[in-house]
């Protein structure tokens, strides 16, 4: 947010948006912590599915990567996109849009989130992976809702997906063990 008296910083090969983001990050890093805010923070990874933005706690993730070649499985549930050979193992690639009751995005996602789930190995197809952020998360409410809203440090409201419940719903049918 620009204010009167700000210096205009320019950098080669960086547009104004990128410059502002770098400066904002450095500002946060150098700023003393707010004494009043002693709430516990959770690190989440933000991602997008179509136009919708979600977040998943980093603790629930194993890895993020670009989606390699996908092998479709005949007779598979609608949420199962296919199987992926990843680092010598077979991953079940799911489309979380079905579980989140969203319309399928116009273009299929190019990135995937590999969840920390022993068996079966599960990966989620997302449109893009945005960044890692710290949010104040009071934890799961215990209800049957798949998402809960949290507030990030930059004031942005994120919808955090309940990974366990998501996995439970995605695994409603038998899958390939890998």
């Amino acid at each position: 947010m620009s204010m009167p008296g700000d210096l205009r910083v320019a950098a080669p090969f960086l547009d104004a948006e990128a410059v502002a983001a770098v400066l904002a990050e450095r500002q946060r890093a150098l700023a003393p912590p707010e004494a009043a805010d002693q709430r516990a923070r959770t690190r989440v990874l933000t991602w997008t599915l179509g136009d919708e933005a979600y977040a998943t706690p980093l603790a629930d993730l194993f890895e993020v990567a670009a989606i390699p070649r996908v092998t479709a499985v005949p007779g598979a549930p609608a949420a199962l996109v296919g199987l992926i050979a990843w680092r010598g193992a077979v991953l079940n690639l799911f489309d979380p849009a079905v579980a989140l009751r969203l319309a399928a995005p116009e273009e299929p996602g190019r990135a995937m989130l590999v969840l920390r789930h022993a068996a079966p190995r599960i990966a989620l197809q997302v449109s893009a992976i945005t960044a890692a952020a710290a949010v104040v998360d009071r934890g799961a409410t215990g209800g049957d809702t798949l998402t809960r809203f949290v507030e990030a440090d930059d004031g942005q409201r994120l919808a955090v997906v309940d990974t366990a419940l998501l996995i439970q719903r995605l695994l409603a049918r038998p899958l390939q063990e890998g």
Binding site: L45, L61, I129, A132
Partner: peptide, 17 residues
Amino acid sequence: SERSHLLALNASIEAAA
């Protein structure tokens, strides 16, 4: 840069773990 971005994210994940 994309791969670097993903690598950074994976590093964040490993750091969180």
